[in-house]
Design a protein around this nucleic acid. Sequence first.
DNA 1: CGTCGGTTTGAGAGCCTTCAATTCTCGTGG
DNA 2: CCACGAGAATTGAAGGCTCTCAAACCGACG
Lengths: 235, 235
Amino acid sequence: MLMHSSAPLAAHQIVDPSSVAEAMTLTALLRAQNKVAFNAKRTIFHEEAPADSVLLLESGTVSLFRFLPNGRRLISRFLFAGDIIGLSFDDEYPVSAECVTPVTAYQLSRSVLQRLCAHSPALQNDVVRVLKGELTSEHEDHLPLMHQPSDSRVARLLRMVARRNGAECQKGLPIQLLMTRGDIADYLGLTNETVSRSFKKLKDQGVISESSPNLIRVEDVQRLMSLADGEEASA
Amino acid sequence: MLMHSSAPLAAHQIVDPSSVAEAMTLTALLRAQNKVAFNAKRTIFHEEAPADSVLLLESGTVSLFRFLPNGRRLISRFLFAGDIIGLSFDDEYPVSAECVTPVTAYQLSRSVLQRLCAHSPALQNDVVRVLKGELTSEHEDHLPLMHQPSDSRVARLLRMVARRNGAECQKGLPIQLLMTRGDIADYLGLTNETVSRSFKKLKDQGVISESSPNLIRVEDVQRLMSLADGEEASA
DNA sequence: CGTCGGTTTGAGAGCCTTCAATTCTCGTGG
DNA sequence: CCACGAGAATTGAAGGCTCTCAAACCGACG
């Protein structure tokens, strides 16, 4: 769980720039905003629509995606509780956002945030911190995938989901995959068939076990980690 | 050319936080710093070294890369004149930086930048702007590659290089590729052989022509663009 | 003129995709 | 509680694309 535990502030307290404490963090600010809820599969916003708000995910999972002209869907990121959506947006959403599960989130208008930032170096500083974090995770999560075979990509996804749930992988750790094989494929740059076959291969090799398609259990941590890191994939 | 044209400031002018103008941009600030020069193939900094400075590229091309445990090199980004290196770094460099060509750059210590930002909302705001830009280009340049075949990846690279040189692709536009086929492969997630074969295929189809391996000319703009965008790759 | 790094080309193997069919899962309604 | 249906997941076969390994080519440079 990445969320801070600071007490929420009433919205009227933060709309007035002068009352923004120097130590204000973006997460604390967002936790003081109106809460919104979405059903699973609900689209939160569409690509190219005017980008008017920033969200803090309180619970649930969201996917950010867009389509290539060839019709392939490209999921750029999965978002989990504690993640902030939309900090890097300009005037238009560069991607669509869809709920993988039921979602609750706090919502803040971009223009208000912009005004608050102009008066609070601490808040602006926190924006920089979060943006850096986005770049780092893009760098760590997504980039290496391109140079890895399918098994490693799946292993890396499992590790990412485990970590986002706050747990390092250890023997027996259950990992709940709330997204479909198709979602995973569109994130990893594979097809759902290949993803399915990679899961089977990992099962056959005793790296993971699977009670249902959505519930994976880690069996061989070493092997899973070395696959995820991209070491040689010899049997 | 991305560089601003504001007049350079003497270094002493900006080291004192109180003298930082409200309208200060990061680029203008950096252009007032000491200039450094590197030979081609020179390593500017190594992965995991303490990250102490931010650079503005004045001329030349730089690659940012790291190695996967399997020995594959992964180029995360090519940087061109006007690009800023190191804004998103924490205490350690997450990648190595190597000069593809001879390079000149302006250098500023991160700690000084941090101090200046703390006193200049305008500068901090510009940092946010540049970070957003990095996220956007990561999103536009790198992510789609994973879902595209090799020809499209090469086409996309050509378009990227052309744009970074300030030119939209048009018939006859010459594109100078200062990096090697191996560099391109490590950026696109392919091998140098496959990159070479993709260039050949594009030549055979009349999409491009090539006077030397490093000098490409655009012949069929429509086809090149639709390949780069990822439309169906039928003959 | 020889060397060395980079590029191209070829052959074969392996991985991933496509297309198609089957099985599984789970929410819904009886 | 069970049966059903729709979407998701799995499995199979065939083909295409990319990789590996290897050799030949090219150009810059001493």
